[in-house]
Structure formats: C-alpha cells, structure tokens
Amino acid sequence: MKNRQFTLRTVAVSCFLVLAAQAPTAAIAADTATKKIALSNNFAGNSWRQTMLKSWDKITKDAVAKRIVAQAPSFTTAENQATEQAAQIQNMILQGYDAIVVNAASPTALNGAVKKACDAGIVVVSFDGIVTEPCAYRIAVDFKKLGEMQIDYFASRGLKGNLLEVRGLAGVFVDDEIHQGITEGVKKHPEFKIVGSAHGNWTQTVAQKEVSAILSTLPAVTAVATQGGDGYGVAQAFKAAGRPTPVIFLGNRHDELTWWKEQRDASKYQTMSASIAPGASTFAFWVAQQILAGAKVPKDMKLPLSVVTQQTLDESLKNTEAGGVVNVEYSQKEVMNFLAKLK
C-alpha cells in the first residue's frame, strides 16, 4: 500500500454510511458559477481546525478559479460562543450567500439563525459540529462510536482499572457524543472506572494544563480516553508529574503520532488513534455546491473515521505534515460520484 492518503480517500468514498428518509436522485453538474458559499466556523484554536480551514481554502480557491462558484470565503468567530456565531450567520444572510456551511458551536443554539437562513432560501450544510434544525443538512462521523471504540480497544489489550477522560469543548455536539460513547463503553466493560475528567478543548496546551491540575488528586491511571488534539499534552502532564505513562488513545495529530513513534521505538509502547478527517469541510463544500446545482441529497450523512494502528503508524506519520492531522480532501468528482449512487 504505497499511498496512505489514497487509501483513506478510497475508503472514505466507498464506505459512507448514509441515513436518509427518502431516496435521493443522482447528482448533476448544473451551472453554479454565480453562487456564493460561505463557511461559518466557531473555533480555530487547534491543529485540526487549522488543517480544516487550510483544506477549505485549498479546494474552494480552485473552485473559484475554475468558475464553479463565485465566492467561498471562510469566517471564524473570535470566541467559541453560539451567540456570536448566530450573529455571524445573520450577517451571511444579509450578505446574500446562497449556501452556508457550518461547523457549529452548539447543536441547538444556532437553530434559530439556521432556520432564518433556510427561510431566506439559503442552503445550510453543517459538518463535524452539526445542528439539529431539520432544514439543515448534517455531515459527521459516528462520534459515539469513536468514544466507545476507545474503551473496546483498552479492553482488547487486557487492560483494567482506572481511566482518565479528557473531553473537548464544552457544549459542542462532538464533545457530548464522544463522552456518551465513552460512558457506554465503560458500562459494557465494568473492569474500568472513570476516576477523573478534564476539558482539554482539543488542544495539547490546554490538555496539559488541565490534566496537570488534577493529577495529584487521582489514583494510578491505567488508560486515558481522549477526543483528539489532546493526547500529546496528556503525555507531557504525566511526564512532568513523574507518573507512569498510561495507554493514551490519540487523535491523528502530527505531534501525537510523532510522540507515539518515539515511545514505540524506545519501549514498544502500543496504542491506537482515530479522528474525523479535517477535509470533511471539503466534502461539505461540494455537497452544498451540488444542492445548489439541483441535486437532492440525504439530510444526514456519516463519514468514516480515519484510524491509525500500530501497523499503519509509520505510513500515516510520513503522509502527515508537521503541525497537521491525518487528512482526506474531496474532489467535486468524488462527491458527485458518491451522490450519483444514492438512488
């Protein structure tokens, strides 16, 4: 397998799980050259979000240059506040965008603004941090599965004992779903007990600070369930405290994979890593473009998780740029071919 990126893209295109109330029609390539699509993003303070924005910028600039769409700017709020993002969406409505792609601060708090956009004839496609407003489209991975699979992995290793849970941004759909999955996993595997929890905000510096603040209060920790972007910070917190390094589930970030490789080479350290690919933003962009072109697509779509194992670590790290995340970016043709199969 020579190219990890190609493999991930192939899996992503061929293995979608799609939930739809009605059978959609084939995708079409109607002219959208005058259409304007905007990205509303609530947070950019970690490597996943920065890679997501880079992927959006790369794909949409090419789409504008080829006159597939007229504009596709991205906007990120200064704070992760639903009220600020709702105001941002209100401005997009006034500015006459034809579609808004949203990575939402809250699954419910933006519903009023989203409904106003839909009522104004604007297509709204949410991804990663999705919204529950029925008029919007939703693209995500099975985040509950991501939480549960961590506990399953720990159990498959024959581990047992105390767990530390490091969560993401409070109030965001992704954080809630992964947390629920972790909780379900612990119920299924009673040999584990969650003895501490901290919000790492999907950022290694915050995770290190917050975990360091509670470590002295915790008993011995066997494993750490995380949400991505936090694993390296967790490892540094344990190291600084002079405590043994537990099995830390990682989230596909370059710094995490680099640390993992160093530990593996030095002491045969074993773990696993998984996340949604930042390039989900490019899939959402093309879905919005295709809806504007007249295609009918399902309201709810699920992307596959990008998974890194002990066996694929070297290849994944080789194909991930420093400061980045294991990624997949989608082309218009890939998304059109996917939609064309939904009949």
Rank of each mutant, 00 (worst) to 15 (best):
K54S: 09
L317A: 07
Q81G: 07
N162A: 15
A274N: 06
I194E: 04
T25A: 09
A113D: 02
G161K: 05
T83F: 01
L169I: 15
Q227D: 14
I151N: 03
V247H: 12
Q50N: 09
F238C: 15
A26D: 09
K66I: 04
E256T: 09
I122D: 03
K144G: 13
M1A: 09
V221M: 08
L305M: 13
M336A: 10
T320S: 10
A63N: 10
R9K: 04
L169K: 09
N91E: 05
L159D: 15
D57A: 12
E191K: 14
G242M: 11
V11C: 04
V64E: 13
A30S: 11
Y137D: 07
A65P: 06
Q270M: 06
V141G: 11
P24V: 07
Q208G: 06
G294K: 02
I68D: 09
V141E: 12
P219M: 11
L110I: 00
S216H: 12
A70V: 05
W56I: 06
C15F: 05
Y269N: 14
M149K: 02
R253Q: 10
A237N: 07
L342S: 06
T34P: 01
T76Q: 02
P134Q: 03
I151V: 15
G231I: 14
L317M: 02
C15H: 08
F283W: 09
R243L: 14
V195P: 13
F238A: 15
L342C: 03
N111W: 04
K35W: 01
C118F: 00
A21Y: 13
A293T: 01
I89Y: 02
V18T: 08
D230R: 01
K318Q: 07
Q95A: 11
T83M: 01
A21W: 11
K299F: 03
A21L: 02
E79C: 00
D142E: 13
W259D: 14
N111P: 01
A136T: 04
K341M: 10
G242T: 09
V247G: 15
V234Y: 08
P244Y: 15
G200D: 06
K116N: 12
S106W: 00
I28N: 14
G324S: 01
E329V: 00
G228E: 05
V297F: 06
V328S: 00
G185P: 08
G158E: 08
D119A: 03
A21G: 11
A240T: 10
W260N: 13
G228S: 12
Q311W: 01
I214F: 14
V131F: 00
L339G: 03
V287F: 07
N201T: 08
Q88T: 00
T51Y: 02
L164P: 08
G251P: 04
A155S: 12
L305R: 04
K2I: 08
K239H: 13
F143M: 11
R264F: 11
Q88H: 08
D119K: 08
L250P: 05
T258M: 06
N201E: 15
S281R: 11
A170W: 04
K187F: 10
G294E: 10
A72T: 08
V186C: 13
Q263P: 06
W202R: 11
A82V: 03
V221N: 14
V174R: 00
K333L: 07
K299A: 10
